[in-house]
Structures are given as C-alpha cells and as structure tokens.
C-alpha cells in the first residue's frame, strides 16, 4: 500500500533550555492510504501534538513529515493553508460551526476558501449533507440542530473538499452513546469509501471500531497496532 502519512524522526519542543517540554520525541509513524486509525494515550502523551502536526496546524521542530509524498515540514503559511483546504478534513469535539450561517453555508465554507465556483459549492455541500443524512436540514442554523446533527454537519464540512485524510479530534467527546454510534457509523462508511481516517480519542469503545490503534506516551509511540484485547492493559499502565 502507498503511505499517505509518514513521520520521520519528528520532534516537537515547546520552550527552550531547562523548561523545554518535548511534546514529541523522535516519532516515527507511517499511515497508509485507506487506514482507519485511532491515536490514544494519557493526557500529555503527545497525541494532540501529533494530531496538530499531521493536520498541518503546527510545524515540527525537527524531522520530516511527508503528506501524500510531499514534505510539508517547511512549507509557508499560505501553502499549508492550501494543503489543509485540499487534502485534509477536520472534525472537532466542539463542532465549531459558525452560528450565523446555515448548515448548507457552513459546509460551503471550505469551498469558499478553495475558490470553488458558487453554483458548484451549493451542489457539493448539499451532496455532502445528504451523505451524512441531513438532506432535510440544509437551511437550519446550528442552534436549531441537536449535538449529533451538528457533528454530522461538521463531518459534511470536513469531507466536502474530498480530502485524502479525515482528522478527528475527540469527535464523540461531546456526544451521548447513541449519537456516538451514529457518528462512528459515518466514519466507517467514509473509510470504506477510501478516505483515510485518523481519530484522537480516549474512549476504548470508540477506538475498538478502528482497525489500528497507536498508543502514545511521553511524546513517543509506545505501542503500534495495539490489539483491542490488549487495550485494557495499556490503559492501566
């Protein structure tokens, strides 16, 4: 399989001297096209930092990061913005929908920055919302939607520019168990359609739905391809 994400000796250090915090220490990680991957670990383990580096929201202090075979570690702000727009889709715990825009307009937003023609935007946004089962909620404002529906709008926004990688940061953290299942089902479908899904979570049940668990600790990958049955043990150690 072709690697889509390749971290080579990636370090991320905050501060300097004695007070320096090594959030990532010599991380090597390869994720291939079509994988469904959970990143786990205790708080402060570096999993969020890893997610930010992978999402091109943050640059590594040293090391190389190939995204879709392009070294993105040293790209400019504008180039990174372009990559986030075209190749990546983000889903967050707090949804982060803009309250003054309708569901459709929220989903259209990435295409606004991507320079997609207006007519095509509407079609693609409606299509993405249909895909997450919200074809009858196009013109609702976020406040008129339930938490699960809001997160589905956010997922539609993440996939509307047809990204190669979908990055989800605790996507079910603010949802009840029923809507969690709904959202995970959508992730499963998206992954089945060929999108690489990477998800940070601290919930074992959520992680079990994926087919690869990467366990971070102290800024390093402690376990990779952790078997679900070993998960309980990893959580306690």
């Amino acid at each position: 399989m072709k690697p889509i994400i390749q971290l080579e000796h990636v370090n991320k250090t905050y501060g300097s001297g004695e007070t320096a915090v090594h959030a990532l220490a010599d991380v090597n990680l390869t994720i291939e096209v079509g994988e469904y991957c959970a990143i786990m670990g205790p708080s402060g383990s570096g999993k969020s930092t890893a997610m930010n580096v992978i999402g091109c929201l943050d640059r590594p202090t040293s090391g190389r990061y190939f995204l879709d075979e392009v070294d993105v570690a040293n790209l400019s702000d504008v180039e990174l913005a372009h990559i986030r727009n075209r190749k990546l889709g983000f889903v967050f715990q707090q949804f982060h929908l803009l309250p003054q825009l309708s569901a459709l307009e929220n989903v259209m937003l990435p295409m606004v920055y991507g320079g997609v023609p207006n007519k095509e935007r509407r079609e693609r946004a409606a299509e993405a919302l249909t895909r997450v089962g919200l074809s009858n909620r196009l013109n609702n404002k976020p406040t008129q939607l339930s938490g699960g529906q809001q997160q589905r709008v956010a997922i539609a926004r993440a996939i509307v520019n047809r990204p190669v990688v979908l990055l989800a940061d605790e996507p079910t953290g603010a949802l009840d168990s029923h809507t969690t299942q709904e959202v995970l089902a959508i992730f499963g479908e998206l992954n089945a359609s060929g999108i690489t899904v990477i998800m940070v979570t601290h919930e074992s049940e959520v992680a079990r739905k994926t087919n690869r668990i990467v366990w971070f600790r102290d800024g390093q990958v402690l376990h990779d391809r952790l078997m679900p049955e070993d998960l309980a043990q990893a959580v306690t150690t």
């Binding site: 929201l57 702000d77 504008v78 913005a81 727009n85 803009l98 937003l109 990435p110 920055y113």
Partner: peptide, 16 residues
C-alpha cells in the same frame, strides 16, 4: 478566536 481557528483549519490563510 474559535471561529478564526476553524477558518484557518479549513483552509483560510493569514491574508484571508
């Protein structure tokens, strides 16, 4: 700030 962060995450550059 959250809106700004979100806009950046979905592809807005500094100049946008």
């Amino acid at each position: 700030t959250q809106e700004i962060g979100l806009r950046k995450a979905i592809g807005a550059s500094q100049s946008d």
